[in-house]
Amino acid sequence: MEISNTESIPGRTIVQFYGVVTGNTVRAKHIGRDIMAGLKNIVGGELVGYTELLQDSRKEATDRMIEQARSMGANAVVNVRFATSSISQGAAELFAYGTAVKVE
């Protein structure tokens, strides 16, 4: 499965379009991480726990999108976009979407 955030896959041609595929995940923060982040919040700097949490979540959203594309019979996803929204306090939705295509 090839994915790209451009309208085509470099060096390939698109032979068939399957439509929009999406993947999402909603994650809440874990209390232990929140306490560490609370301390980090005084001196500033990177919140490593949150960075990892969001990276893992984004990967999961992308994997779900890929899974959907695969089930349609596509072999690539083009024009992938990411979106993040905080739906409630302490929880965030990570969303990935793109167009499933077949390339040669």
């Binding site: 090839e2 790209s4 060096g11 919040n41 001196v43 990177e46 960075t51």
Partner: peptide
């Protein structure tokens, strides 16, 4: 892609960071 790039393979790459504001 710029015209002089000839690609053999491609993938999506990303990098992210979460930062906080100090007190």
């Amino acid at each position: 892609m710029p015209d002089d790039w000839i690609a053999s393979s491609s993938t999506l790459v990303s990098g992210s960071v979460v930062i906080s504001l100090d007190y």
